[in-house]
């Protein structure tokens, strides 16, 4: 007869806490140049680099500058270690972000905190050169220059635009600079330098950094 369990509690109510204004779906442009850059960024070798992040927020009288070391590995994810102004480590993969401070750790998982994770995911996709993934959420445009390139990402969804108005990625071989600008006029610029391409697979010591 009737499917009782379903009848008892057909929870078809789908709570929706996030909102968006209507945005026309933009047509994806697959340019060969973009594909070439994506292929270069998507290579299997881990990326090792130093970084300097400059967060300029209009409300704050001076930018928040941090410096440190990062590793991006396709299998293990992102290791983001801030050295100054204070030591702090972020570990991130497809499922979660872990923040480590000395003995303390806090975890944001994609399943538990989708909103907080959603923003981190964009950053992850940028660093991993996942242009295909980014095209789901962003209109991607490429400005090739003499021996460098610049990719501009503009969010398709108003929900994301409310936080982030655009991302500009500059690079030659690897990514050299990422600039994120938000609706409030704040910018976050991350410079990557001292990259060490060709250093091979992760060493055991480097692998140990991902443990938490």
């Amino acid at each position: 007869m009737l499917r009782l369990s379903l009848m008892l509690c057909l929870a078809l109510w789908l709570p929706v806490a996030l909102a968006a204004n209507e945005v026309p779906a933009s047509v994806m442009v697959e340019s060969p140049e973009l594909a070439a850059i994506a292929a270069r960024l998507a290579r299997d070798e881990p990326v090792r680099s130093r970084f300097r992040q400059t967060k300029a927020m209009r409300l704050l009288s001076r930018p928040l500058v941090s410096e440190g070391e990062m590793i991006f590995d396709r299998a293990l994810g992102l290791y983001w270690h801030i050295e100054t102004p204070f030591a702090s480590t972020l570990l991130m993969n497809n499922e979660q972000v872990v923040q480590l401070n000395g003995s303390q750790k806090s975890v944001v998982t994609a399943a538990q905190q989708p909103v907080a994770f959603g923003f981190a995911k964009v950053f992850f996709q940028v660093l991993s050169g996942d242009l295909n993934g980014l095209q789901q959420e962003f209109s991607v445009s490429l400005a090739p220059m003499a021996d460098a390139w610049q990719i501009t990402l503009v969010p398709k969804e108003a929900q994301l635009r409310a936080v982030l108005s655009q991302i500009v990625i500059d690079g030659v071989d690897d990514i050299n600079q990422v600039t994120m600008t938000d609706q409030a006029g704040d910018t976050t610029t991350i410079d990557f330098f001292d990259q060490r391409p060709g250093a091979g697979a992760l060493t055991d010591q480097e692998r140990a950094l991902y443990a938490f």
């Binding site: 992040q53 967060k55 927020m57 209009r58 409300l59 704050l60 928040l64 941090s66 983001w80 801030i82 102004p85 204070f86 702090s88 972020l90 991130m92 972000v97 923040q99 401070n101 806090s106 909103v115 907080a116 923003f119 981190a120 950053f123 936080v163 982030l164 938000d182 609706q183 409030a184 006029g185 704040d186 976050t188 991350i190």
Partner: peptide
């Protein structure tokens, strides 16, 4: 302390409007 870490993190969706 957590707030500072959050603000220095490259992934926080906090901007001037929120902070004000």
């Amino acid at each position: 302390r957590q707030n500072l870490q959050l603000l220095y993190s490259p992934m926080a969706a906090v901007n001037s409007a929120v902070l004000a």
